[in-house]
Amino acid sequence: MSKDKLVLTARHKDVLKEIGNICAGNAATALSQLLGKKIAMNVPQVYFVPIQEVPEVVGGAEKLMVSIVLQVFGDAPGVILFLFPQTDARVLAGILTGKRTAEGVFTEMDQSAIKEAGTILSAAYLNALSSFTNLGLIPSTPGIVIDMAGALVDYILIEIAASSEHALLIDSEFIDEEKSVRGHFFLLPNPGSLEIILKAIGEYNSGY
């Protein structure tokens, strides 16, 4: 496939949105069980943008974010990026550990709790995607980074940039009932994986 001739049609976007919806729904259920509170989600957004624009999509290049990153192995490799503003990550850690976190510091325990939430969410998301597409997808162990959003994503984009000028992001937003935790969950399929996913659901034809 010559990646840069690839045009994502409106129909493809709709299909990806629908898949995102199903997968994120599954993940929201898992997260709400983990946290013991209602988790709402917004209709997923699908972005197919030049690599340079990705930092804006994830919240702005300089925005300080807490991010959990997992690699996706298997039939359609990619990356999962779960991003929170710092204050929201603190609330999330507080809910999970049962302790209030002091300003400015994320303890080992907080980080580990946030990673755990990322793992469970990713597993639930990928599980749904797997059964929908019949593709084998396995998440790696999570990494956590607290830094500027631009710096977090450039690492991930470097790999995509080696073969493409564009990146695909399926963005799902999770919000708890008090609206104190808002997180964005991004699935970034590798350039070749988009074709694999579309093929798996019978939406790929050589006409685009």
Binding site: I51, Q52, A61, A149, A151, L152, D154, Y155, L157
Partner: peptide
């Protein structure tokens, strides 16, 4: 200056990139 881009300019301009990681 975005990722995978370049600029040349003169004083008094400032050339900037925000949030550089492994780039």
């Amino acid at each position: 200056v975005g990722m995978a881009d370049m600029e040349v300019s003169k004083s008094p301009d400032i050339l900037a990139s925000l949030g550089i990681g492994s780039c």
